[in-house]
């Protein structure tokens, strides 16, 4: 029973990692850029929602605040692409990585200026409620996290593999020029993807802040989520979720069964192992440059 409890809370954490990883993969799939600030986007989304709905700030009803903050974050994602990332056309992936790391610093600083550095949690209708299944007691927030994550991943997966727009986006990622000739509006697609990534980050932030507390440095969690994305193979949405869950579950178990300090070590050790033995992630195919 104890193990099950541990597993569930690990899964709930893993879902948040998975959602951030989803954002990484979304952007990577469509633009081959890596947004290292995705974790900071999540943190920002959490704070925006807190700012809108918590009694200490604006006090807007929760169910109204959620769509507003998701829209705000989607807009942020779009603007970032429009006014920053697009200027980087022709520069390397690594340059984009460095840029978004720097962006993370800036976002953390701004968030700290606005909302302070104390951890805060999101006031929400599910707070404190529990779900009892026999002997098993689950926090409603954990359940909500898992359900929302599964639904969101499934929805995005369907979108990319079934709808015309989604398929066009996949095409845009594989060969931008060809996609452009085929009539895919590459730039608009990119803007849309960044907006989508912003929205997903916001949802992750809402879930995270509902079951715990955020402070500006929470954004650094993005690094762990990035590890999850790589473990999952960087390029597949279900892979990202799987990677997130693996990392989420491995943490509590490592600290339980090896030693307390190891919950931090385990995800990165796993990441290194994956990179050494499968240099392109667990579930991905290698592409060779043609000369």
């Amino acid at each position: 029973m104890d193990i099950l409890q541990l597993l569930i809370s690990g899964l709930a954490n893993g879902c948040v990692y998975g959602l951030i990883a989803l954002g990484f993969v979304l952007i990577y799939k469509a633009t081959e850029a890596v947004n290292f600030a995705q974790g900071d986007f999540m943190m920002l989304g959490a704070f925006v929602t807190i700012g809108l709905t918590n009694a200490g700030y604006m006090g807007i009803p929760f169910w109204l605040a959620v769509p507003i903050s998701i829209s705000i974050m989607a807009l942020m994602g779009y603007l970032l692409d429009r006014f920053v990332i697009r200027l980087m056309f022709g520069q390397s992936q690594t340059a984009v990585v460095i840029l978004t790391i720097a962006l993370g610093f800036v976002i953390r600083f701004v968030a700290g200026m606005i909302w302070g550095h104390e951890p805060q949690s999101l006031e929400n209708p599910l707070a404190g409620k529990e779900l009892r299944l026999g002997e098993l007691v689950l926090g409603m927030e954990d359940v909500a996290v898992i359900v929302v994550t599964i639904l969101l991943t499934w929805g995005l997966y369907e979108f990319f593999n079934r709808t015309k727009m989604g398929l066009a986006m996949q095409g845009a990622s594989q060969n931008q020029l060809a996609a452009y000739y085929m009539g895919v509006p590459v730039k608009r697609v990119q803007g849309f993807i960044w907006a989508l990534a912003g929205a997903v980050a916001c949802i992750a932030g809402i879930l995270f802040a509902a079951k715990g507390a955020v402070d500006p440095s929470t954004g650094l969690m993005g690094i762990k989520a990035f590890a999850a994305a790589v473990i999952g193979g960087f390029g597949s949405l279900p892979g990202a979720l799987a990677g997130g869950l693996i990392v989420g579950v491995i943490e509590p178990f490592a600290s339980r069964y090896i030693a307390a300090g190891y919950s931090q070590v385990a995800p990165y050790a796993l990441l290194l192992a994956v990179l050494i033995f499968r240099p392109h992630g667990l579930f991905s195919q290698v592409r060779v440059k043609k000369v």
Binding site: V84, L87, M88, Q91, A95, I98, L99, I101, A102, L103, G104, F105, V106, R108, F109, V110, G112, P216
Partner: peptide
């Protein structure tokens, strides 16, 4: 966080 914020901002300007 001011130092890192400013530093990050300078870096963004340079990369762009």
């Amino acid at each position: 966080g001011l130092e890192f914020g400013v530093f990050g901002f300078i870096l963004i300007l340079f990369i762009l």
